[in-house]
Amino acid sequence: MNKKSFLFLGAITLWTLSPVLAGTSIAASAKDNYRTYCAQCHGIAGNGRGINIRDMSVQPRNHTDAEYMSQRSDDDLAKADREGGLAIDKSVLMPPWGDTLSPSEIQDMVQYLRTLCHCKYNSQ
């Protein structure tokens, strides 16, 4: 294989793998954001049992609960994340993160939540 063919093959391989590589970095930043902003209430394991919950009148959502999480659409989850619980008729204790996370970070967070519940939206 000559040098030109080798470079061409390398470029094609990188182009093919780029969505996978990009997906990996998005998941990593969402995980970091979850640890920073969400874990204080939803817990380091995402089970709704964060350090803040003892005196809360409404307990935070368990993000590993596939049955509940599959009933919420991605748009609903993004709206709650961006605008807070009141925006989806839930608790004021869930704050809006729209001034902290960018729109793409919020979309990434929704995908990260799907990895915690191992579930997708099921409209049935």
């Binding site: 874990a39 817990g43 380091i44 394991a45 049992r49 964060g50 350090i51 003892r54």
Partner: peptide, 10 residues
């Protein structure tokens, strides 16, 4: 923080 029986603990 560390995991606790009912919730994460300091």
């Amino acid at each position: 923080i560390k995991p606790g029986p009912k919730r994460d603990m300091v």
